[in-house]
Structures are given as C-alpha cells and as structure tokens.
Design a protein around this nucleic acid. Structure first.
Lengths: 121, 121
DNA sequence: TTTCATCTACGAATTATTTCGTAACAAACA
DNA sequence: TGTTTGTTACGAAATAATTCGTAGATGAAA
C-alpha cells in the first residue's frame, strides 16, 4: 500500500467522510490553524503520489481518496498487532475490549460475528 | 503520553522485549543497516525526552523504557479506533476478526473475555 | 473587454527526524 | 604509565515533512 504521513492521513480521513471535496472544503473540515495553501500543497503532493485522484470542475479541483478506507484500516490493524502487540492476538483483543468499552448491544454483535466465523471455518 | 517517532517506537519495542539493554544490544537487536552511533544518538534523544531511563554500569549505560508497553498499546488502540475507524467499535471489531484470523483456541479465549466483561458490567 | 474574486502552481523557508563523523573519556591491561 | 578498546557526547550534515508567500491562471460579473 502507498505510504502516507500523519497529516496526509488526516486528509484521507476527511475525504473518506466527504467522499469528494475541493481543497477549500477539506481545509475547512480540518479546522486547523495552518494556512490554506498548506492544505493545497499537501493535497497536490498526495495527488502526485497517487493517494488522491481529482477532476477539474470549473476552475477548481474536486478530489477523492484513491485508497479505500477499509484497506487502510486493515493495514493499520495488521501493523499494530504485529508491532505494538508482537503478534499477540489475545493481547490485542484484551486491549480492544478494555479500550473500546463496547456496549451490551455491541458485545452481542461481536458475539454474532464470532459465531459466524466459527461456522465459516 | 509522551510522543515518539517511528524509529523511537522500534527502540521501545526492543526494550520492552529485552527489559534492560545497552546501546549495543539494542543496535544489534534492531539489525538495521544504519551505523551504531545512529542508534546511540536516538537513545540519547529518547533519554532527554524522558522516554528512556538509564543507569551507568562500568563505562556503559543500561537503558530501560520509561513507558509501559500496555500504556502505549492502549493509546495506540484508542487512537486507531478514533481516527481510522471514526469511533466505530463494530467496524473495528470486524476488521480485527478479519485480519487477526484468530484460531479456534483464541476465539474461545475471546469469548471468555466477553463473558467476563458482561459479568462485571 | 476589463475587473474582481478564486484557485492553482510552485519555489523556497522552516521545522522535524535521521544519520554519521570525530573527539574525548573510561576501564582494562601490557 | 601509556596503549588499546569500547563507549559516550555532540555538532552538524542529510533527508523528510510541513508551511507559506507570491505569481499567474481561470471564470464570472460589470
């Protein structure tokens, strides 16, 4: 997967949310204290890297993320399990349950997922 | 929590593994193609930042991580759920089950954890 | 057209991170 | 003692990432 820096991830997150957006829209969504041209430049760089796609519309560009949120999620997940948890699935699960503090409803949904997995296996 | 860069995390991981180690030991464990003084400098910076502690032993320093692995794990977890998953516990759980591909045994252990949580709640 | 308000492009400054060379220091020991 | 070896300290170079200013392009409006 194409690599991205932290700021770039922030922009990807905005675009996953907005689907498609102009630089101005992204800049406003970021609500940062940095200048507009900073966001512009970052998005241009991301376009050059292939992280974003864009099409011209009037005088502006409309950008989209060129990487699926789910792909990034899966990579982040694998990466974290491998590095921070040394590959320990159980340690990871434990930290997850402790930190996400799932509600009763969510726990039920998770149990259902597990049941489904067991059936598929 | 104190922030750390990527390279710094690599060193933390080694130290969590080794418990306590000299620069040389860390450098060897990293098995990188960079010079020894690079590792040395990084560890000095981390010491200055308070990420590591050390004690003199003979002419060398023995370093330890000054941040618990579990704390870093919990932070990474919260961070990831919040950013990459937009706070969606279920999305996260789904990605986890899909990527970690827990074995039957691990699934059982996870179910036990859930049962325990439900009892505590 | 000319003017005006947006936008983009892009070079360059700034800041953060990583890397390394060299000097100096400390312990061991010939 | 003086030489060798392993180690630290530290400045500074190299690289990467972020930020911004300014010039120029584009479309809309007078």
């Amino acid at each position: 997967m194409k690599a991205y820096t932290n700021k770039e991830l922030e922009i990807l997150i905005v675009l996953w949310e907005l689907e498609a957006a102009s630089v101005l829209q992204v800049h406003e969504a970021l609500d940062s204290d940095k200048g507009y041209t900073t966001t512009l430049k970052l998005m241009q760089i991301m376009f050059d890297k292939g992280l974003l796609v864009r099409k011209k519309e009037g005088k502006k560009h409309i950008y989209k993320a060129n990487i699926k949120r789910q792909v990034a999620q899966n990579n982040g997940m694998r990466n974290m399990i491998q590095n921070l948890f040394g590959g320990s699935t159980l340690g990871f699960a434990q930290s997850f349950l402790g930190n996400a503090k799932p509600t009763k409803k969510e726990l039920d949904a998770i149990k259902a997922m597990i049941k489904q997995m067991e059936k598929d296996a």
